[in-house]
Design a protein around this nucleic acid. Structure first.
Lengths: 234, 234
DNA sequence: GGCAAAGATTGAACAGTGTTTGGAAATTGA
DNA sequence: TCAATTTCCAAACACTGTTCAATCTTTGCC
């Protein structure tokens, strides 16, 4: 492969700088404060120059969201893999705790990913969906090892998005539609308390959401039939 | 009480008209499309006139949010009370289903209530917190009648907001800190899947979130020890 | 090296936005 | 009727995202 030309390198560098200053504004003042002109001002460039690098402000936010998605997925995978594959309860617990920990450490990015993204039908960047899939696959792994009786409704592969099921079945050959549905429910259960807390609806009423979330996670792991032997009982 | 003066009536009417057109813009195009000047244009008034009725745009959105909160709380209460007090499983199920149904019927209002409201420390209007309390109390009622062994962590009244616990204990004298914590967990469990769906993160992967949510609710009711006898088994 | 083509950058402009302000008009209580 | 309070308008200010023609800079090629 030929080395990138001078212009391409400069372009990549400027793109990175735009994303970096935009990210700074994002984490400090929220998504609404990510202003084109503010970024241009910080970088000492004319406002119009921005459009040589991103089609629109929304595209920049989508790029930031894709990065955040990747970062979150990496953190969750890291948390799971900090326990051996045999101890699935501990892996599930670590995943759940890492989900909240990342959200608390990056509240604005968490909001960018999960709040208000629904009205615009979400820019389907290739690597955006890729990161989204990896995040889902993490929960699929948890659900796949769960020991639960089939829960009520029967599911078929046709109930799910073909592209997603293809990726999921490739990663977990023994997967069934029921456990795929279960994985989405597990995600929802982890997401609920975390998003309530991030959106400020838990804190006013309870002082320590940490214990609340830990209780919920413990109940979840128990309900999934995953004995959590985090301690040293042999 | 003296009848409202002519001016007061006119003021109330104009305030209502502002809120009405703002609500129209909200449900049709989302919260970001609620523009002062657009409202003024629709009503045929100068932009500055708006500030005789609301201090700021944010105050208008807060008022809209308070109304939405009241509407949601009313719907949930109505759903619960459609079943006799003895059948707590059915009441819990109805509450959960109504939560999602309202969100699907009013997605923009749901987003206004629960998304992005966290960064600004929320305008604490008196009736806003009142409606918020009523919503919480509905879940407290569910948790209060649950038949579950105490879940792990011990809780004290000091773990919660005094104002909130006062209202909750007034409504349910036999309440314990543990069940108050449980009620927040129940809320989180209902909220998770619903907010994921509203934010468009469920739909791309599963076709019918309805069944998924029903399964989750059934599992929740079962876990709470509330036998759901919705059918006609005598 | 010189040169046309492509790309990056500029600064001004356009159409929006929320908000402030001074003064005119209207409504009020006395 | 009169003064005081409140509503309303029009214009302005300081922003925002986006577009556009005109420059300056780099690139590939002869």
């Amino acid at each position: 492969m030929p080395a990138a030309s001078r212009r391409e390198r400069h372009r990549a560098q400027t793109t990175a700088e735009i994303k970096a200053t935009a990210l700074k504004h994002l984490v400090e003042e929220g998504a609404e404060a990510v202003a084109l002109r503010g970024i241009a001002r910080d970088m000492g460039m004319a406002p119009g120059t921005f459009y040589s690098y991103f089609d629109t402000r929304e595209a920049l936010l989508a790029a930031l969201a894709a990065d955040a998605y990747r970062d979150l997925a990496a953190h969750l995978r890291e948390a799971r893999e900090s326990h051996p594959r045999a101890e699935q309860g501990a892996r599930a617990l670590a995943h759940g705790l890492a989900y909240r920990a990342w959200a608390l450490a990056h509240p604005q990015e968490f909001r960018l990913l999960f709040s208000g993204r629904g009205q615009t039908p979400r820019a389907d960047t290739a690597d955006s969906t890729e990161a989204e899939y990896e995040l889902c696959l993490g929960i699929v792994e948890i659900a796949a090892t769960a020991q639960v009786a089939d829960t009520g409704s029967p599911y078929t592969w046709t109930d799910f998005d073909p592209a997603f099921t293809a990726v999921a079945r490739a990663a977990f050959p023994a997967l069934t539609p029921a456990t795929l549905a279960l994985s989405l429910r597990v995600w929802g259960r982890m997401h609920g308390l975390v998003t309530l807390e991030i959106d400020g609806l838990l804190r006013p009423q309870i002082d320590d959401p940490d214990r609340l979330y830990r209780d919920e996670l413990a109940d979840l792991v128990r309900a999934l039939g995953l004995t959590e032997r985090t301690g040293g009982r042999p």
